[in-house]
Amino acid sequence: MAEYNITDSVDITDVNCPITFVKTKVALDELDDGDILAIRLNDGEPVQNVPRSLKEEGHKVLGLTQNEDGTYRLIVQKVGD
């Protein structure tokens, strides 16, 4: 997998929908245009919905990979302020 210059990371495995996306948004709000956020999320509903919601807001989803512990790692680039 490609290596990214990660600006910040957030773990959303401790919360449920819709707080998963809320926590992601709060982390993104702290970043600048072009910064990259790494998100640790659970399989199922978060993997289905969080990337889609990020795309709907205009951000760029760069990759989604499975971690060894069964969680996922989502890489997103912030678009806009």
């Binding site: 819709p18 707080i19 996306f21 709000d29």
Partner: peptide, 23 residues
């Protein structure tokens, strides 16, 4: 910074593109 409780309380606002955490 928002507490987890505040994130939950204001989640339906923060989710809105027009509000967000900044709003």
């Amino acid at each position: 910074a928002f507490t987890n409780e505040q994130l939950e309380r204001y989640s339906r606002h923060i989710i809105l593109k027009e509000v967000g955490a900044k709003g």
